[in-house]
């Protein structure tokens, strides 16, 4: 079965503030400030742990600009709602685990002589 190739560029996921700041979607304003400042400090001293962050589409590079943009976005109610929309954990629960069944011996049963 041929799979659709993944899209490499999805800004609402790649640059989602919750992923950038590594925060849950129910975090408060204080959590955002604390996490942002901490990451900025870590980036300033060049700590490796802060240089990248995880997204459901794979790891992405983190820099000071991205952190500042993420903090600003989460202060805006509309932008925050949009970010929450895509950062909800249940969205990223793998649906492929409930794959539909296949009729593996269909060719044999239907006598197509193919395999």
């Amino acid at each position: 079965m041929s799979l659709v190739s993944a899209r490499m560029d999805a800004p609402h996921i790649d640059e989602n503030p919750f992923f950038v700041l590594d925060l849950p979607i129910d975090c408060g304003a204080m959590d955002i400030e604390r996490a942002g400042q901490k990451l900025l400090a870590m980036l300033k001293v060049g700590m490796k742990d802060a240089a990248s962050y995880r997204t459901p589409l794979g790891p992405r590079q983190r820099d000071e600009d991205a952190v500042r943009r993420a903090m600003a976005a989460l202060r805006e109610p509309q932008a925050r709602a949009m970010a929450e929309f895509w950062a909800r954990p249940e969205v990223w629960e793998p649906v492929h685990e409930t794959r539909l069944p296949v009729w593996s011996d269909a060719h044999k049963r239907l006598g197509t002589l193919d395999r």
Partner: peptide, 27 residues
Amino acid sequence: RPPTADASYLLARHAAALRGHVTSEDM
């Protein structure tokens, strides 16, 4: 199966598509 119009199921399938876990028919 979950109803296809269910919002969270729809989003989950959309997310799976972004990660390349679906076929053309699923798309």
